[in-house]
Computed example of a mutant assay.
Amino acid sequence: MNKAIFSFVISAIIGLGIGYVLYGLLGGTGNTPQEPVAAAPSSSTSTAADQSTSTQGSADKATAVDENNIIAKRGCIQCHSVGSLNIKGGQVGPDLSQAYTTVEGKHGKPIEEFLKQPTSAVMSGVIGKNPLTDDQRKQVLELLKKASEAKQ
Rank of each mutant, 00 (worst) to 15 (best):
81 S>Y: 00
81 S>E: 01
82 V>G: 12
82 V>Y: 07
83 G>A: 15
83 G>N: 14
84 S>C: 06
84 S>I: 04
85 L>R: 07
85 L>M: 12
86 N>K: 08
86 N>P: 03
86 N>G: 11
86 N>W: 06
88 K>E: 08
88 K>F: 09
89 G>A: 04
90 G>N: 04
92 V>G: 11
92 V>W: 14
92 V>H: 15
93 G>V: 04
93 G>I: 02
93 G>C: 08
93 G>N: 11
94 P>L: 08
94 P>H: 12
95 D>N: 14
95 D>L: 06
95 D>P: 11
95 D>S: 10
96 L>Y: 11
97 S>H: 02
97 S>A: 11
98 Q>R: 04
98 Q>V: 00
98 Q>F: 00
99 A>T: 01
99 A>K: 03
99 A>H: 01
99 A>S: 02
100 Y>Q: 00
100 Y>C: 03
101 T>I: 02
102 T>C: 01
102 T>K: 12
103 V>L: 06
103 V>Y: 03
104 E>F: 02
104 E>L: 01
104 E>D: 06
105 G>A: 11
105 G>Q: 12
105 G>V: 02
106 K>R: 10
106 K>T: 08
106 K>L: 10
107 H>R: 15
108 G>M: 05
108 G>W: 05
109 K>S: 11
109 K>H: 02
111 I>F: 07
111 I>L: 13
111 I>R: 10
111 I>E: 05
112 E>C: 10
113 E>N: 15
113 E>Q: 15
114 F>P: 09
114 F>W: 13
115 L>K: 05
115 L>V: 05
116 K>H: 02
117 Q>R: 01
117 Q>S: 01
117 Q>M: 02
118 P>N: 10
118 P>L: 02
118 P>D: 07
119 T>K: 01
120 S>F: 00
120 S>H: 03
120 S>Y: 00
122 V>C: 00
122 V>E: 05
123 M>H: 12
123 M>T: 09
123 M>I: 03
123 M>Q: 12
123 M>W: 04
124 S>K: 15
124 S>A: 13
124 S>Y: 03
125 G>Y: 13
125 G>F: 12
126 V>Q: 14
126 V>M: 14
126 V>P: 03
127 I>S: 13
128 G>N: 08
128 G>R: 10
128 G>W: 07
130 N>T: 11
130 N>R: 05
131 P>T: 10
131 P>G: 14
132 L>H: 13
132 L>M: 14
133 T>P: 11
134 D>Y: 06
134 D>Q: 12
135 D>G: 04
135 D>V: 12
135 D>S: 12
136 Q>V: 08
136 Q>K: 06
136 Q>T: 06
136 Q>R: 05
136 Q>S: 08
138 K>N: 13
138 K>T: 07
